[in-house]
Design a protein around this nucleic acid. Structure first.
Lengths: 271, 271
DNA sequence: GGGCCCGTTCCGCTCAGCGAGACAGGGCCG
DNA sequence: CGGCCCTGTCTCGCTGAGCGGAACGGGCCC
């Protein structure tokens, strides 16, 4: 918003993207910019920092922040703004995660007890997986996954399960753009990926070895809803040296059937 | 849903509250009404249903819904609107829950493995507890608690822990309005409640016997942040017939110290 | 003191947002 | 079949909610 040149002036907004300005002349657009100014690891932001990141006029940010404060979407301590509890509350109402999560949760607990390894529940969102739930033990903070975090489809076991058993058109969309190399062993060639998908389709589950993180592998299985279409993926992630793929496959497939039943019982047939 | 009298005209909004109209003439106010039209158990709503619940003009709801759709706060299947995944995503960024949750999570797992009973993590929000996390096994769907759900302070173990070890002014605010009787054994007399709080303060933990749900008891312990002030409560809930309060107290107090350390290590000193 | 950046407030302009109303489609009933 | 009612969608002219440049007061550091 602030123009280039002029050496002393603050260096423009973080996002000078083209559609940025287009979004900014609607109230909702500004609110979006404000809320999304908080990155996944930001705890709190000062008003001026928000102004800098969003490019919205200070007076506007201030006014909207007051309104968001009143709603509870933002909170305030001193002169720092925090994302507010009400956001968490509303977020938990989202049915696509709530129903699946409530159904899968106890079974994920079982899987964790049986394996001692990290268990993930993921769904497709856009061209990425998004993790709905994660059950794990101590000392595994450095794993790149996180509840509500996103990962590419082509390098995760859950992603490959979604590619293999989810919407048919998905694969084409994914390989339309270059596949990111996450580790040295990440598959970036569409042909190879297609083979892996095919293999997963035959086996009934998907595996990923050190393609997301060196030293770890994951096994994932699809979950189907009442309509018979795939709605989510469930995975076990373990260090390669102690991983027992066959065991995981057995446990996952057993649990998968039970969760499907549980979903059908709890829910009318949506999800 | 349709009100009495006047057979043909629609009966105005469900909520004809005084501040309702005040909120409605701001864009954000309308958006709030729209998002909050989705109750905790609603899966999806049609446009007209939203209009009915919010009292906002149909054209406005339609326009705003389009914008929310584009943002991802709403999703759409057929002509039904659902709360969207992006809400879940943003909600998980809220630091007050994220930091605590990430720190407490593995320990809650330990507690569940050690007891086989339901484990809750709760914080104070307004004059209620709000559950940040819940770890439990199968077949306990009927428990009134739910992640991001709210419960009164005076009838829950976590609530009493917050009353005993949290802000000093809290007790006065809570007893300022009549205490709801949730079960026959719920304490509704302020004096009795004060005694229980005092007892909890002495013991270092809070107990609730069949005051939230007949046949169940809970034991809760406070969690303190880096500054030494109380920030959350952790509890075990079990059927009375097999509950072992002393065991729970021992486990909780051990875990409590570790979590506090973990919070201090992970976080600068906020929360 | 003087510069700097902070959060807050003011105020007149104007365009985003408004909502009554028209419209198209679909399901139900007589 | 036509009439009715309830959907979701779209148009269009009016207007006040929202806008943002600018000014203000306070805290911090040089």
């Amino acid at each position: 918003m602030h123009s280039p040149s002029s050496p002393d002036v603050k260096p423009l907004a973080i996002v000078p993207s083209p559609e940025h300005d287009a979004a900014a002349n609607s109230v909702l657009g500004k609110v979006r910019l404000i809320l999304e100014a908080f990155g996944p690891d930001d705890e709190s932001l000062g008003l001026s920092e928000i102004v800098r990141r969003t490019g919205v006029a200070k007076a506007s940010v201030h006014r909207l922040a007051q309104e968001l404060l009143q709603w509870g979407l933002l909170e305030r301590r001193g002169s720092e703004y925090w994302l507010g509890m009400r956001l968490f509350e509303i977020g938990q109402r989202v049915p696509r995660q709530r129903i699946l999560r409530e159904a899968a949760r106890p079974f994920m607990e079982d899987l964790y007890q049986a394996t001692g390894e990290t268990i993930h529940l993921a769904v497709l969102d856009g061209l990425e997986v998004i993790y709905l739930e994660k059950v794990s033990g101590h000392g595994q903070v450095s794993r790149p996954s996180r509840v509500a975090g996103r990962m590419p489809l082509h390098c995760t076991a859950t992603g490959k399960a979604l590619l293999a058993f989810g919407p048919a058109a998905l694969f084409g969309d994914v390989v339309a753009t270059p596949l990111a190399r996450v580790t040295p062993r990440t598959v970036t060639a569409p042909k190879l990926l297609a083979q892996e998908i095919q293999q997963a389709r035959k086996a009934g589950y998907a595996v990923e070895r050190e393609q997301t993180r060196v030293g770890y592998l994951s096994v994932a299985i699809p979950l189907t809803g009442a309509t018979g279409t795939m709605v989510a993926a469930l995975s076990v992630t373990a260090p390669t040296f102690r991983a027992d793929v066959n065991k995981y496959v057995g446990l996952l497939s057993m649990v998968s059937r039970r969760i499907t039943k549980s979903i059908m019982a709890a829910d009318g047939g949506r999800t």
